[in-house]
Simulated scan of single mutants.
Amino acid sequence: MTSWLLLTAADAASSAAASAPEGGLFDLDATLPLMAVQVVILTFILNALFFRPVGRAVEEREGFITTSRAEAKKKLAQVKRLEADLTEQLKEARQQAQKLILEAEQDSDKLYRDALASAQAEAIATRETARREIESEKDRALGALQVEAERLGSLIVDRLLAAS
């Protein structure tokens, strides 16, 4: 159809050129409305074949981008909320860990003090037992020495009396 219009326009232009007087800047004849019709028809054809599908593709792309951005914002908000929750859980876990460490230190300190007190009590008891044993041995030794001294003293007295 476009070629028919072009041929018609060319014939009209040649016939108009033959009958029109020369010398004007523009020749206003039948070619101007024919060209206007051709531009309008070409616009409709281009719009139907190229611009509408491209426009639809652009609109679909914009819709996809809009929904993707909305989903990304939702996911970002969810990530921030989860990050805040995890930060709070981590803070609580650290506090509990510090509390457990403090309790363990207190328990170990108490066990250390109990063991130290027990060891000191046992050492005191052992020292007391040893002191008593030493005292009893000392008393026995003194008793034995006393008996021996008396025996020796009486032996010396007997010999001195016998010698005199």
Rank of each mutant, 00 (worst) to 15 (best):
R94A: 09
D107Q: 14
R61E: 05
T87S: 08
A9L: 13
V54A: 15
E62L: 11
A48W: 07
T31P: 05
R159G: 05
A12M: 07
A97F: 15
G63V: 02
E122M: 06
L100T: 14
R56Y: 02
M35A: 15
V58F: 05
R132H: 07
K110N: 04
P53E: 02
S108N: 06
A13E: 13
G153L: 12
A9D: 04
L111T: 07
L100C: 06
K75G: 06
L82Y: 03
T43N: 07
Y112C: 03
L100A: 13
L152Q: 06
L155V: 08
E137K: 01
E105N: 04
G24P: 11
R61V: 04
L34C: 03
S164C: 09
N47Y: 05
S108R: 10
S154Q: 12
E22N: 12
G24I: 10
A12S: 10
Q96T: 14
A18I: 10
A123T: 03
K99D: 15
K74I: 13
E103A: 03
G24Y: 11
V40R: 15
F64N: 15
Q146D: 08
L86Y: 09
T87G: 01
S154W: 04
S108F: 06
A36C: 12
L25W: 00
T126Y: 01
L42M: 08
L100S: 12
Q89A: 14
L82Q: 03
L42H: 13
T43W: 13
D109Y: 07
L145A: 02
E133L: 03
V40W: 11
T2W: 10
L90G: 11
E128S: 01
V54N: 11
G63M: 06
L155I: 12
L145T: 00
A149V: 04
Q96G: 10
N47V: 12
D158W: 05
S108H: 09
A30P: 00
E92R: 11
L46K: 15
A30N: 07
A121L: 00
D158S: 05
D114V: 00
A48V: 08
R159E: 07
I156N: 10
V147K: 08
K91H: 12
M1E: 13
L25P: 02
R127G: 00
L49M: 05
I124D: 09
L102T: 14
A117F: 04
L32H: 09
V79P: 01
L28C: 13
K99C: 13
V58W: 06
K138G: 01
A9W: 04
L86S: 07
G153I: 11
I45R: 14
Q96R: 13
A125T: 02
E133Y: 02
A72P: 05
D107R: 08
V157H: 15
D27L: 15
L116T: 09
A72T: 14
I41S: 10
Q146V: 04
L160F: 08
Q38E: 12
A97M: 15
F44T: 11
A141T: 00
G24S: 15
A130S: 03
A115N: 05
A119Y: 01
K110Y: 02
T43H: 11
D114K: 04
A125L: 00
A36M: 09
L6R: 11
K110I: 04
E128A: 01
L86K: 12
L34M: 02
A119R: 01
Q96K: 14
